[in-house]
Amino acid sequence: MKNGSTILLIAATCMMLGIFTHFNMDKRNETIANANPSLVKETEKQNQKENKTAKESQKLSEFKVLDNKLRKAVEIIKKEHMEAGIIPAKLMIPKINVKANIERVGVLENGQMGVPSNIENTGWFEPGTKPGAQGNAVIDGHVDSKTGPAVFFDLKDLKPGDEILLSDQKGKTITFIVKKLKSYPNDKAPLKEIFGPASTRNLNLITCTGVFNHTKGTHEERLVVYTELKEKTAHSPKKQQNAKRPISPDHVSVEGTFVSWHAVRDKDIVGYRVYKGKKNKPFKHVASISAYERKTYTDQEAEKYSYYVTSITKQGMESKPSSIIHPEKQP
């Protein structure tokens, strides 16, 4: 596996573009984008745009599936996920009288999420999930300009239960319900929660909040409004079944430089994610192993860390973490 560095995302959505933490992911598997099938597909598209060889972009797919039947199933599910979403053109938030056009934004060279070109528009993070599809779609907007309020100035006044409406060019409209509002210091935003994979269909709105720091040229905090798609039909049994979480891998152990586990015997499993952590630090996704491979992750310093492993179905559902293995505590 090549150590291609994928710089990824986060939003600086204020008029004054602030320095915002970006993640420099060393391995393909460490990106949170890769954790999301639809994100992977988008990333692949982008790579092709950048004239990368097909081979390289293929490598970005998290799990390889050898079985033809299963591979087709995975593709159909990915497609369903893609089709489920819309390409948003307009945003309406009746509660705070917002009606705005939506631009498509990507990742800036410095790794930040792009921002809309003016203070009236909002920006949909195009490399990510489509609104309405499973996962976290993200839209950002400015809170203010040097001279006054901007499109998301009143975003902070939203309450759980308020509605957000998105429509595409043809007028197809979908509705999201506000679940919660959260502010984070600039560099402390939980990227995975905002951009990463999810079992529900979410839309997250981002803008600036807090005190404006003149030295840094940005607001001190970012406000995230978490919303979830308002389902028109009640959960159909089929959908629920699709969304069932797989069983967690067991027999996770560390022998020397090997972190190993046993396969989950479920034909829907396409692979496993290995997470690595250290005392008081959050676990990080370090590797994705396809179902047919040796269930081993090699780490020269395996005994110094803790690990857990999850299993992933063709639907993209991730199991609960396996029990955490602490090799340093092993006898």
Binding site: W261, A263, K295
Partner: peptide, 8 residues
């Protein structure tokens, strides 16, 4: 099915 177990 027993691939992982031989590896074990």
């Amino acid at each position: 099915k027993d691939y992982d177990f031989v590896n074990w």
